[in-house]
C-alpha cells in the first residue's frame, strides 16, 4: 500500500533510498524506539542491575566496589523484623485505600465540573491546586496543619462541633495512618477527575445523547459507556497514580518519619532510613527491591480488570 516510489515530490533519488528503508515498519519502528531504549538502559537498566546485586551484598554507603556477596541473607534478616511487615502492610493499605477514595471523589468531581456552570473555571483552578503544588511542599503544609498545638483542623473541627478534645493527628497510630491517607487522597483526587474529564471529552456526544434519550442515568452512563470507552486512558492514569503513591516516600518522610513507634513506615521510607540514613545500602536495596513484585501484582490486577471491560 505504501509505495514510496510513487511520491510525486521533487526529491533526490539518494535521499529517497535512505528514507526508503525508513518506510518499512520493521526499520522505522526500532529507529524510533531506540532513543527511549538507550536512555532506559543506561539510566535505569544499569543502576537497576547494580541495585539488585547490592541487595545481595553487605555493601554500606562507604563501600568502594561491590561489597561481599551474602546471598539472600538481607532478605531473610528483613523478614524477621517487625517493622518490615508493618511497612509492607502500610504500603498496600495506603495505596489501595487512597486509590479507592481518589477514584470516588474524582469521579463525582468530574461530573460536577462537566456541568460547566458559570464560575466553574474558578472552582477548577482552586480544586487543581493540590495536584500542582510540589508534594514536598504540600506535605510540609499538612504537617503544619496537623501540628499538635496549632492545628487549624482541630480548631475548625472544635468550633463547628465536629471534633472533641485535641486529636493528635500524627502521634496516634490510627490517626497518623488516616492523616497519611488523607494527604495522599487530597493530592490525588484532582488528577483522577482530570483523567476522567479528559476521557469523557473524548467520547462522542451523540453516543452520550443517545444514551440519555434512552433514559440512562449518570451512573449507567459512567459504567456502560464512559468507562469502557476511556479504558486505555483510565488504565494509564490509574497505574501512574498507583505507582506514584506506592513508591512515594515523601509524605511519610516529611510527616512522621515512620513514627509513632515505627507504625507508619512504608517500604520506600523504610528503605531510605535503613539504606541511606543508617548507611546499610545492601539491606536498604533489599527493602526497595521488594516493592517490585508487589507493583507487578498490582499492575497485573489493574490490567486484567480494565482489559475485561476493554473493547
Amino acid at each position: 500500500m505504501a509505495r514510496p516510489v510513487a511520491i510525486p515530490d521533487a526529491r533526490g533519488r539518494t535521499a529517497l533510498s535512505g528514507l526508503h528503508l525508513l518506510e518499512r515498519p520493521s526499520v522505522l519502528g526500532p529507529v524510533l524506539v531506540a532513543p527511549a531504549i538507550l536512555y532506559i538502559l543506561v539510566l535505569v537498566g544499569y543502576p537497576f542491575v547494580l541495585a539488585v546485586y547490592l541487595s545481595m551484598t553487605n555493601t554500606d554507603v562507604a563501600t568502594t566496589g561491590l561489597g561481599r556477596f551474602v546471598g539472600l541473607d538481607n532478605f531473610l534478616a528483613l523478614f524477621q523484623t517487625e517493622v518490615f511487615w508493618t511497612a509492607l502492610r502500610n504500603t498496600l493499605m495506603f495505596t489501595l485505600v487512597s486509590a479507592v477514595l481518589k477514584g470516588l471523589l474524582g469521579t463525582l468531581l468530574a461530573f460536577l465540573l462537566a456541568e460547566n456552570l458559570p464560575g466553574t473555571r474558578i472552582f477548577r483552578f482552586v480544586i487543581l491546586l493540590p495536584w500542582t503544588i510540589p508534594i514536598a511542599l504540600s506535605s510540609i503544609t499538612w504537617k503544619w496543619m496537623f501540628d499538635t498545638q496549632y492545628s487549624i483542623i482541630n480548631w475548625i473541627g472544635k468550633n463547628i462541633g465536629l471534633i472533641q478534645g485535641n486529636p493528635n493527628w500524627l502521634g496516634d497510630q490510627t490517626l497518623a495512618v488516616i492523616s497519611i491517607i488523607a494527604v495522599n487522597v487530597w493530592r490525588g483526587f484532582p488528577f483522577s477527575a482530570i483523567i476522567l474529564l479528559a476521557g469523557m471529552a473524548s467520547i462522542s456526544q451523540e453516543v452520550l445523547d443517545a444514551a440519555k434519550v434512552d433514559g440512562a442515568g449518570p451512573v449507567t452512563r459512567l459504567r456502560k459507556i464512559i468507562v469502557p470507552m476511556i479504558a486505555p486512558i483510565l488504565f494509564v492514569g490509574s497505574l501512574y497514580d498507583l505507582v506514584f503513591t506506592m513508591t512515594d516516600m515523601t509524605v511519610v518522610y516529611l510527616l512522621t518519619l515512620g513514627g509513632p513507634a515505627n507504625t507508619t513506615h512504608v517500604l520506600a521510607s523504610l528503605a531510605f532510613l535503613v539504606g541511606v540514613q543508617s548507611g546499610a545500602l545492601g539491606r536498604g536495596a533489599a527493602i526497595a527491591l521488594l516493592l517490585l513484585p508487589i507493583l507487578l501484582i498490582v499492575v497485573f490486577i489493574t490490567l486484567r480488570t480494565l482489559r475485561r471491560r476493554d473493547i
Binding site: T148, N166, N168, W169, L170, G171, D172, L257, G259
Partner: peptide, 9 residues
C-alpha cells in the same frame, strides 16, 4: 505528658 510527644519532630 500528653500524647503529643508521639508526633513531635
Amino acid at each position: 505528658m500528653t500524647d503529643e510527644v508521639f508526633s513531635w519532630d
